[in-house]
Design a protein around this nucleic acid. Sequence first.
DNA 1: CTGAAAGCGCTAACAT
DNA 2: ATGTTAGCGCTTTCAG
Lengths: 353, 353
Amino acid sequence: MGLEMGDTHRSKPRSRRGGVRRDPAAATISRVADAAGVSRATVSRVMNGSTTVAPELAARVRAAAEALNYEPSLLARSLALGRTSTVSLIVPDLANPMFQDILRGLSTAAGAHGHRLMVAESNENAEAEQILAVEARRRSDGLVLASSRIPEPQLRALHERLAPLVLLNREIPGTAVPSLSVDYHAGIRAIVAHLLGYGHRRLVYLAGPPASTSNTDRLVTLRAEAAGSPGFHLTELDCGSTFETGHAAARAVLATGATAVVAFNDMVAFGALSGLHELGVSVPGQLSITGFDDIPFARYTTPPLTTASIPKNELGRQAWERLWALMSGAPPGYDARFQPRLLVRDTTGPVRA
Amino acid sequence: MGLEMGDTHRSKPRSRRGGVRRDPAAATISRVADAAGVSRATVSRVMNGSTTVAPELAARVRAAAEALNYEPSLLARSLALGRTSTVSLIVPDLANPMFQDILRGLSTAAGAHGHRLMVAESNENAEAEQILAVEARRRSDGLVLASSRIPEPQLRALHERLAPLVLLNREIPGTAVPSLSVDYHAGIRAIVAHLLGYGHRRLVYLAGPPASTSNTDRLVTLRAEAAGSPGFHLTELDCGSTFETGHAAARAVLATGATAVVAFNDMVAFGALSGLHELGVSVPGQLSITGFDDIPFARYTTPPLTTASIPKNELGRQAWERLWALMSGAPPGYDARFQPRLLVRDTTGPVRA
DNA sequence: CTGAAAGCGCTAACAT
DNA sequence: ATGTTAGCGCTTTCAG
């Protein structure tokens, strides 16, 4: 099949200057072209399935590629094409199932369109997140920021450099950055109404990370509700967003004398539940607990957790849709604010007489 | 500061051929060079912190870069350098906390060395995994395959194309591919001994995905133990690796008449626990249950799950070390097989009289 | 210390 | 239908 190597495409001697070739034996488009006795353009055409190549030539090219174990460099291809077919996602905490679900939704949707996903975790650190965001964006064609902890001014200053950008649980008012979020206000109202209906009047809120805007949302609504309902007493406890912080807060919760605890999210609720259990407190007998997010484990705890469910996977999926639209110059969909669905399970009950 | 634009570095007119520039206004090294009145080489030197540049020139370059909002193209840089500073991870199931922990360990370690992580999920599909693996590898400098479901022959055929490659919970005997794994045999033996000590003689194994080699390991040991202990009766139930499958298996578990269930992993154990709970079965009163992995939730279930703990984060961290060694031409560390630690919690107890 | 030029591997407009 | 060539944006050797 005449697969000998030549150098017909390199008029000047290859003097091993410039960039570093990793594997000197690696097959390149030029080698394949030489081996098949065609031009690189033809090889490129064949590799990309162009129909305008004579069957015989195409066969020769394929044989050469096969023989040389040729695999086009995606890097070079990306550079030439101006796109990487990769998008990035940044989350505050990979350990949180909530973000993992978003990750899955995004990964799946992007994958279905031939795109890969790059992930990075900011560890709840706003500084780190900014660096990561810029770098991640530079390595890919688009970026999704989930529950970004970046303060508004910085985010506002940054958003143009990050475009195409999609925000999850965050928005930049006055800009066209697509945003998908959850109506935490509504979720909290539903939780409070549920608790009030059971006769609870003394609630304690296990607050999440201060940089979390959704924590602020919850707080604002909680305070408003407390202010609006006579006899409704609210205590706020700084907590965090993890099992551990929820678990550690058990004793403090007890000390407040509250009859119901509204946890920042399911992880915290789960931790508190466990901590309370260790202290011999029965739930919901002595104390009611609510979570937020409805992570997969929530329905399997004992007792199953009352929580506000949000469409995590959908958030990821739709983030992809918005991003894809942005990347292809189409109009992104309208911003959406998903309404949480209250799932009354067994960690809440009537207040003890 | 003389930041006007010029075209001194383009002898031929830029006729907008070849590759597609995404953003025509984007700052490139050439523009910065022109603006600063220096060569691209100098800009490159400055951007990469070379000390051999005259302070005055360096300042001019920095000013120009700043003014133009210049950000070097990581893509072009990667092409020239021959490396992407990115590594990839492929897991069967992103929903499994076990893999998420590995992901975190790897992500953190890689990040600390200035590398980014790319993830893909094979959804327990061996075919998809092979495609993903090859592509992921082509986009990055190295690959980690976690609990790969790729059959041995294919994996063996593929491993050279995937190098630098590190395997987690999998190995290719006879090759030099670094492998980090868990001694499932030992873990299962510890679990069985624990159960036998409580007087259990009829066990049921909730089997994981058939393609999982670690499932095979568990099975082999379980059968050996059963064969070696008179009176020890083992039933095998095909199950899977998720909550749902564990939950769905509850009734079947009961039907076996076993007094203890050995679940493939914590997720399955958790699902079974929940399913049994719904059927009014008390654990460990009527039935004992064990998991495997010790995912974060395991200690928070009610009752807390008896399981075999494995160093998930460490697996990710060390995977990075091996990969990094491979990529830098250093000898990778020795293969390691971590010994699970049995964590006796409250889902196991004496067999009912 | 700086610049010129070759090179990384691929794509696509243009010409034949 | 195929080849030629310019170009993607950066790095690095070499010469001065």
